Simulated scan of single mutants.
Amino acid sequence: MAIEPTDELIELQRAANRAREKALAGVYSREAWRPWLEAADALQAAVTEHATAAGQDRHKVEQAAKDAVREPVDA
């Protein structure tokens, strides 16, 4: 049975991805990376909460959220 991530998890994954891109685009500093780390923490908390409530493997839930927002690769 495939795991379907919630809209909330998808949006949290997108936010973490955007924050990561922004953090990696500049010079490292704690302040510059803070939004990425906070977005990643929020995503992880939501993944754990969802997986626990649904009785699903949290790693599979996390991967489903990542897969849902992954851009297709052109061959």
Rank of each mutant, 00 (worst) to 15 (best):
M1E: 05
M1S: 10
M1G: 09
A2Q: 11
A2C: 00
T6S: 15
D7P: 01
D7T: 10
I10Y: 01
I10N: 02
I10S: 03
E11I: 02
E11P: 00
E11S: 10
L12R: 13
L12K: 13
Q13Y: 03
Q13T: 14
Q13E: 11
R14G: 09
R14V: 04
A16R: 14
A16N: 05
A16K: 12
N17H: 05
N17C: 02
N17D: 15
N17A: 14
R18F: 07
R18G: 00
A19K: 07
A19Y: 09
A19D: 08
K22S: 08
K22A: 15
K22L: 10
K22T: 13
L24C: 01
L24G: 01
Y28Q: 03
S29R: 11
R30L: 12
E31N: 07
E31G: 08
A32Y: 00
R34H: 06
P35M: 09
P35W: 05
P35T: 08
A40L: 09
A40R: 13
D41R: 15
A42S: 14
L43Q: 13
L43F: 14
Q44L: 13
A46H: 06
A46Y: 05
V47Y: 07
V47N: 09
T48S: 14
E49G: 01
E49L: 11
H50D: 12
A51C: 06
A51I: 09
T52Y: 04
T52N: 08
A53I: 01
A53Q: 11
A54L: 02
A54I: 03
A54H: 12
Q56K: 10
D57T: 06
D57M: 07
H59G: 11
K60M: 13
V61L: 07
E62L: 14
E62N: 06
Q63A: 14
A64M: 07
A64N: 04
A65Y: 03
A65F: 02
A65Q: 03
D67L: 12
D67E: 13
A68W: 06
V69Q: 05
V69D: 02
P72N: 04
A75Y: 05
A75R: 11
